[in-house]
């Protein structure tokens, strides 16, 4: 099946010469959750805005289910829902009215049953007649999601859905996203919380300075790029690393009870065998050996720095 969203050579430059997007190619598969990771100013929001029609692309094309987002914008935009990063809501409007308005704006006939389903799904049904200004920040964010879902989009963009929300609400948000995926909605979310991408995404794209550095299955990315750590726990704590073992890959734990060896699974030789034989030669007695996989965060920081260098 062709991708649900097909982005080819997408560029966005501004009059002052600033290039926010430098030719992005990205195919998004039906029903997946793609997380776009990137530091502030990487071009995540510009990418979303250009796909959704808020800004016009300077070059390149985007098609949603085969509909070009510029030439055939009505068909394309009908498929797409957008939850913006900022809480942009009319303060004096009632929750249900603003959600109904969003549905109408997308040209869909009124459907009270669908609106009720969306509001219940987001735990907003009790608040449906409240004015938006009376809601908490987390509730407002849910209203934004409800507005985006009001017209039954097949593709949903969530721009930093959990920026500035507390841990509990973040977990709620993840559950909401998982529920939408179960309903068959394709989700693209941006975040700079790596744990978020790690927790909910199927694929992860890393974007920096307007370029998509990579897009990969989350598990493959972590396996391929992952640096591992080997912790050699000793029975007798050391004051310093013995001369024979000195290496920039090896460090001593703060209490001296373990040697920590960092290695790359991609390397031809991990150096583990050599390390362990040296440890034995030094007469050190091992209590335990533990390996640890580095998190996405380390991968991400590594990638972005590599790019900057």
């Amino acid at each position: 099946m062709p991708p649900i969203l097909d982005i080819r050579g997408l560029r966005k430059s501004y009059d002052d010469g600033f290039e926010a997007l430098k030719g992005v190619d990205l195919q998004i598969e039906r029903g997946e959750i793609l997380a776009l990771l990137g530091p502030n100013g990487a071009g995540k929001t510009t990418l979303i805005s250009t796909i959704c029609g808020i800004t016009m692309p300077s070059a390149g094309t985007v098609t949603a289910e085969g509909h070009d987002t510029v030439a055939d914008y009505r068909a394309a935009r009908s498929l797409i829902g957008l939850v913006p990063q900022e809480i942009n809501l009319e303060p004096f409007e009632k929750v249900i009215k603003t959600v109904q308005f969003s549905r109408g704006l997308f040209g869909k006939p009124a459907d009270p049953a669908h609106i009720e389903k969306v509001l219940r799904q987001l735990s907003l049904w009790d608040k449906k007649d409240s004015q938006i200004r009376a809601l908490s920040g987390g509730m407002k964010r849910r209203v934004l999601i409800a507005k985006a879902l009001a017209h039954e989009p097949r593709i949903l963009f969530l721009d930093e859905p959990t920026a500035g929300v507390d841990v509990e609400l973040r977990k709620d948000m993840w559950e909401i996203v998982a529920g939408l995926k179960a309903d068959g909605v394709t989700i693209i979310l941006t975040t700079h919380y790596i744990e978020e991408a790690e927790a909910i995404a199927d694929r992860i794209g890393v974007i920096a300075k307007g370029e998509l550095l990579l897009v990969e299955e989350k598990s493959a990315l972590m396996a391929r790029m992952g640096q591992k750590q080997l912790e050699v726990q000793l029975t007798e704590p050391l004051d310093a690393i013995p001369e024979a073992l000195q290496s920039d890959k090896l460090s001593l734990s703060p209490d001296g009870s373990a040697l920590i060896y960092t290695y790359d699974t991609r390397g031809e030789r991990t150096g583990i065998t050599q390390l362990l034989s040296k440890v034995a030669a030094e007469g050190l007695v091992l209590r335990d050996v533990v390996t640890r996989q580095s998190s996405l965060e380390d991968i991400f920081v590594g990638l972005v720095h590599e790019d900057a260098a």
């Binding site: 029609g53 068909a75 394309a76 009908s78 957008l82 942009n88 009319e90 303060p91 704006l105 997308f106």
Partner: peptide
């Protein structure tokens, strides 16, 4: 207030 995004992203 920023709600213009909705007008711009609607069909």
């Amino acid at each position: 207030i920023g709600t213009i995004f909705e007008l711009l992203s609607a069909p």
